[in-house]
Structure formats: structure tokens, C-alpha cells
Nucleic acid binder design. Structure first.
Length: 500
RNA sequence: GGGCCGUUAGCUCAGUGGUAGAGCAUCUCGCUUUUAACGAGAGUGUCCACAGUUCGAUCCUGUGACGGCCUACCA
């Protein structure tokens, strides 16, 4: 919300209270506040202390710093809730206990939302509530705007995303989501580090945005007068590091794709990619399974994760199906249906699959059938292997299954979460695929991958056989925090600016 | 990009073709043990914007802005 040029009454009242506080000797935005405890520490330390004990042997003086989040006034006594980022604790001020001057200053000048430092001793009320009995206080930072409803909080999703700070301060559970996300990322890093991987950082600003099929964001470097793109994937740089002799590397980083926004897509998103020399797709699948099981148990305490209406079990071995097998078992197709594109089209039509016109290649339509009929059923972690070569232009062909590739995608909760490959390291093959992409670009495909001569040069020096993985961090965070939209696990999701 | 829905007080929401209400928050008064404290009283609005229809529009119609959900591209 922009501050209106004319202050409304609620804002003016708060300013008047701030001015009154200053006139009565209060300090303006002091910098030296020093808490010696937190609400959570005191609640834990005195959890067992009863009222008489606290009265009989006074506790040390504690100073807490936090926001005033609730006020209950009884003439010469008041209770407030102090929120300090780790918890909430009741505080009280009274004419008897704090003195008329201190009580009056607080009562007259402190509003909901103000940051205060309060000093006092612990006690219990008649109802048994642990309470810091305040003897001195100071205003640290004034809250100059009225806060949302104490009961409902801030529910307007647009306001929550635009003003995440406000969302977090009135909806403390939002902080938990991002705390979980942070712990998840730490756990992933530790797991890979323990496996001998090295975390690296490769360019975000790239001459050519390669490594995926997506439209990039364009930018410009002034001093070099150079057109640059924000990366869409780190892949081609990480593979260069394999050439350079680093056998296990990963990058956990932001990527940028100039595409639509949805509950599953944000234009900037976080992806983990790792590459491991002398490893195959199968080894990558196993490592991914081990990683996810480790992270879920580490964060959750056990391997079963509630997500929406489902309970997802990371404890059992993940299901592994070729895409073809999944169409037979879960898609309801017969061997005969899968024999030709015409048979597949006819069978798909009876199942209500939308038929593109003209019907695409066998492989593209095959994958279309998979996405429509099978993907929504893949709630429990499932690896889908051997994609058609038509939909996987940069992947090794399967040595035993011509027309199919050594690729595997991990599906959880009906969504794609990770990709696993036996990486292509034959420079002649790679050159041919770059040529094919160049043709697509010339035909107007804005997502075709640019021809990367330097990458090809690196491959010509020899890249060891390797496995590679990409894992969507935001989507994993959605799973672990039980959030339905990617915007709920991104602190500041991209929104259109409001017209002023 | 397409479809559907939404936008009313600081917040959460009702509501009406005759210029609008509740709860919380705010203000005043009372109150020294509350837990969404309570009691009495008060104030609070560009009803998203613009245009049209109408004697009269917050309400009906159109256009636009922003958001949500679905869909498309994709991870």
C-alpha cells in the first residue's frame, strides 16, 4: 500500500503518539537496544515455576525486544503480547509495579506493532500466565501504520505477496515456511558435500543462454557494449568443469526463464544441478532417491509427508517405470495401441485425450498421452524413464532401445520434480544436435538452444562419461511445506506493478 | 496468451438502482489479573478507474487496471 499524500486519521494518531513520546523524554530511533533474553528462552526457563516461587525469589532483570502485538487495558494495569521472532510472551505494566510515569508513558504512547525494549522480572498472573512484569521500557521503532486484524491476519493474497514483511509479521506461520525452505537447502548442501561434491558458481550473465529450451531475459553490459542473457540453466558451464577435471560438481542457483507465471512457475526460480563423472542415469536416480529420503526425514522426523489430501511416502523404494510401461499399466493402452501413431491416436481419442492437429510425431504424441493420462496419477515418488527421442533432443539414445533415451523424470504429487540423464559427451553427436537446434531457430523457434562453439570445443577435449541431475528447489519446498502455490515458497514473487 | 471469478472502512467481510453496514482495529469514558478481556459512547469510505444507460449508478452495460483459479509454454 502506498502512503497516501493525505494521512488518514489512523496514521496521524500514531504520529501524534510518537511525537508525544519524544516530548516526554523518549529517544528517537535509539540504536543501542540489547536484549539479554528471548520470549522463547524465558518461557522455557520458567515453564515449571509457580506463582509463589516467582514472588518469593525474584528473578533477575530481563530485557526483551519485540513488537507489541496485543494490548489489554484495565485502567491502572495492562497486559500486552510481545513478539520477538522466536515466540510470544505476555508482558504487564501497572501503576503499582512500573510506577505511574512508566505506565502512563506506555499507555499513552505505545501502539500495536511498535518495537519496544522492556525490562522486568518474571511472574505469573492469577490465571497462571507467565508474564514479564515491566519496570522500564523504551520505544525502538514506531509502527506508523495500523496493522491488519489481530484475528484474521492478512488474507488478501495480493497484499501478502507484495508486502511479504507485513504478511510475515502478522502471520507468523509464514516465517515457518521459509525457515523450512532454508533448512531444506542446507540439508541438500550437506548431503552433497558429504558425497564429495564441490559447490561451484557459474555465470548468470551469458552470451548465449543454453542448457534448456526456454526463452531468456535479455540485458546489456554498458562498458563492453554487449548484449547478454540471464541464464536459463547452468548445465553447459557445469559440464565444462567435468572437462576441466572436477569429477563431482553442483550448483544451487537462480535461473531465469521468460515464460508464463502459474502456481508451478515463477520467472526466476531455484534449481539444483549436479554432475558426476563415471556415473549413469541409474546411479543418479539412486542418489536422488537417497537425497530426498534424507531431506524429508531430516526435516520431518519421518519419511511420510502430508501434502494436500495425500500422504507421500519417501521411505519405500521409488517406483520405476518406463514411459511406455506407464502408458500400458496406468494409461490403459494395449501393446497394439502403441504400435503406430495412427493406432495411438485412435485409442487416445476414446480416452478423451485432446488430439493436436496435425497430429505431431509419434514420440511427441506419445508423451502428450503420458502427460494427460498418467502424470496426474503419479502421487507417490515415481521415476519415469526412457522418453521418446523426439521430445529429448539433447539426451543420449538408449543403447538397447533405439528411439528412446537415457533420461528419467521424477514425479511426486502429480508434478515433475527432477530430471536425470546419462549425459551426452560425444562431440560429433552434440554438434549434430546443435545444428538441428539452429535449424529450428531459423524456423522461428524462440526456445531453440543456441549453437555454443566454446562448449563444443570443450567436449572435443574430452568429457568423461557422466550422469547429471536437475532438481526444482521451489517445488520441493512446496512439498515440504505443504503449500499449493510456488508463490507461497518464494519470498517476493514477481507481480505486475500496481498503477500509482 | 485464452477462459472463469474477484476488487466495498486500516484488516476480515455483508449489502442495496435513491450517496453504505458489521466484527476487529482506532478515539472518549469506566475498570489492577486479562487471554480474540469487558461495559458505555463516538468517528471512520474516491464502494478499483474511466465511459455509457438512467431523473438518479457502489449496484446495470462496456472498456481498462490489478489479483486469484483453470489452461497454454515450461521446471
Amino acid at each position: 500500500m502506498q502512503t497516501a499524500p493525505e494521512l488518514n486519521d489512523l496514521i496521524r494518531q500514531r504520529q501524534h503518539k510518537f511525537e508525544a513520546y519524544l516530548q516526554r523524554g523518549g529517544q528517537r530511533y535509539p540504536n543501542e537496544a540489547k536484549p539479554n533474553a528471548t520470549t522463547a528462552e524465558l518461557a522455557a526457563r520458567y515453564a515449571a515455576a509457580d506463582k509463589e516461587t516467582l514472588l518469593g525469589t525474584p528473578t533477575p532483570l530481563y530485557t526483551l525486544c519485540g513488537r507489541v502485538m496485543a494490548l489489554r487495558l484495565f485502567g491502572k494495569l495492562l497486559f500486552a503480547q510481545l513478539q520477538d521472532g522466536v515466540g510470544r510472551l505476555q508482558i504487564s505494566l501497572s501503576v503499582d509495579g512500573s510506577g505511574a510515569e512508566v505506565f502512563g508513558l506506555f499507555n499513552d504512547c505505545i501502539d500495536l506493532g511498535d518495537w519496544v525494549a522492556v525490562t522486568g522480572r518474571m511472574g505469573r498472573t492469577n490465571k497462571g500466565e507467565l508474564t514479564l512484569q515491566v519496570e522500564q521500557f523504551g520505544l525502538l521503532a514506531k509502527c506508523r501504520h495500523p496493522l491488519p486484524d489481530k484475528w484474521h491476519g492478512l488474507e488478501d493474497v495480493e497484499a501478502r505477496y507484495r508486502q511479504r514483511y507485513l504478511d510475515m509479521l502478522v502471520n507468523p506461520e509464514v516465517q515457518q515456511v521459509f525457515l523450512t525452505r532454508s533448512r531444506m537447502v542446507s540439508a541438500i548442501r550437506r548431503f552433497l558435500d558429504d558425497q564429495g561434491f564441490v559447490e561451484v558458481e557459474t555465470p548468470v550473465l551469458q552470451l548465449q543462454a543454453g542448457g534448456a529450451s526456454a526463452r531468456p531475459f535479455h540485458t546489456h553490459h554498458n562498458a563492453l557494449d554487449l548484449a547478454l542473457n540471464l541464464r536459463i540453466a547452468p548445465e553447459l558451464f557445469l559440464k565444462r568443469l567435468l572437462v576441466g577435471g572436477m569429477p563431482r560438481v553442483y550448483e544451487l542457483s537462480r535461473n531465469f526463464r521468460n515464460e508464463g507465471i502459474s502456481t508451478k512457475h515463477n520467472p526466476e526460480f531455484t534449481m539444483l544441478e549436479w554432475y558426476m563423472a563415471f556415473a549413469t542415469r541409474e546411479a543418479m536416480m539412486q542418489l536422488m532417491e537417497d537425497l530426498l529420503r534424507h531431506v524429508v526425514i531430516h526435516l520431518n522426523g519421518h519419511a511420510q509427508l502430508a501434502y494436500g489430501d495425500h500422504v507421500i511416502d519417501f521411505g519405500k523404494p521409488f517406483t520405476r517405470l518406463t514411459m511406455r510401461e506407464s502408458l500400458l499399466t496406468l494409461g490403459g493402452f494395449t501393446e497394439a495401441d502403441l504400435a503406430t501413431v495412427d493406432a495411438l491416436t485412435a485409442a487416445a481419442r476414446t480416452k478423451g485425450v485432446e488430439i493436436p492437429s496435425p497430429v505431431s510425431s509419434y514420440g511427441e504424441f506419445f508423451q502428450h498421452c503420458f502427460e494427460t493420462l498418467v502424470e496426474p496419477q503419479l502421487i507417490q515418488p515415481t521415476f519415469i524413464m526412457d522418453h521418446p527421442i523426439e521430445t529429448s533432443p539433447l539426451t543420449r539414445e538408449h543403447p538397447d532401445r533405439p528411439g528412446w533415451t537415457q533420461r528419467a523424470e521424477l514425479y511426486i504429487a502429480g508434478r515433475e520434480h527432477a530430471e536425470h540423464y546419462s549425459e551426452l559427451n560425444d562431440p560429433d553427436d552434440q554438434r549434430a544436435r546443435f545444428e538441428a537446434q539452429r535449424k529450428k531457430a531459423q524456423q522461428g523457434d524462440a526456445e531453440a538452444m543456441p549453437f555454443d562453439h566454446d562448449f563444443l570445443h570443450a567436449l572435443e577435449l574430452g568429457m568423461p562419461p557422466a550422469g547429471g541431475v536437475g532438481l526444482g528447489i521451489d517445488r520441493l519446498a512446496m512439498l515440504l511445506t505443504n503449500q499449493p502455490s510456488i508463490r507461497d515458497v518464494i519470498l517476493f514473487p514477481l507481480l505486475r506493478p500496481k498503477a500509482s
